[in-house]
Design a binder for these strands. Sequence first.
DNA 1: CTAAGCTGAAATGTTTTAAACGCATAGTAA
DNA 2: TTACTATGCGTTTAAAACATTTCAGCTTAG
Lengths: 127, 127
Amino acid sequence: MRLKHFSLGIGSQIFKAFSDEARVRILFLLLQNKEMCISDLEQVLDFTQTKTSRHLTYLKNAGIVSFRKADRWIFYYIKDEVYDIVSRLLKFISKDITLQKDLEMYQVLYSNRELAINKIESRKWRA
Amino acid sequence: MRLKHFSLGIGSQIFKAFSDEARVRILFLLLQNKEMCISDLEQVLDFTQTKTSRHLTYLKNAGIVSFRKADRWIFYYIKDEVYDIVSRLLKFISKDITLQKDLEMYQVLYSNRELAINKIESRKWRA
DNA sequence: CTAAGCTGAAATGTTTTAAACGCATAGTAA
DNA sequence: TTACTATGCGTTTAAAACATTTCAGCTTAG
């Protein structure tokens, strides 16, 4: 389901979520990588655990992300209902250097097998 | 000039401007009517003068609107540099009932010749 | 075995900081 | 003056930052 139009209230809520650079960086990584857990986001973005957790809770309450538990981690992902608008909004700033560096950092950590996702990679998931 | 991409910083600033319903309603009216003065926005939206002025100052500082003086009024308008993105963002919520009612209210007041713009209508402007 | 403590992952409590609003007042230009 | 817009100040409400707590799954001493 991909809504094309939103109410003023919902719209403002989504825009508000995008008004914080930390949240945008989180969403950008979630968009690229489908899903990520707090500890990995923490590492990639060099945020404190609290900051990461709080922003994800914010995004969850705003109806933008949801999560699933897998092994010891909680993986957050962008909800289907807002995936389209989130992806379009992010496109406006997708060339930003900070966002690109975040992606690179993810790749580095991923290659170094330092992420939680590496530890359960071999299993079947998102069935 | 119509930019296609923004930095994370500028983007967040624009999204922040859109995070407040009052500002969205103001921008929606500005988009439809090209330019409006504070006293007219006040009437159409039923805001206090302070509230209206403060939000316009916010939008001005955020680089989203500019203004010109005409007669006794100050007319605010959406800057050309961001016109495209503002218009695209507003499109996501353009069907909202509050926004539509705001437009109707504008039309009513305009028809009743109660707006500042009526008083200088016959002159040439935005040359 | 098993229950006390440890560890990694995430959430919550509390204090600080910033936003939004109204009222009253102050500029400013005609 | 009068009409229009901006600003200082106090209040309320929401968000950020920092430290602490919970919780589940592991260890390991008894």
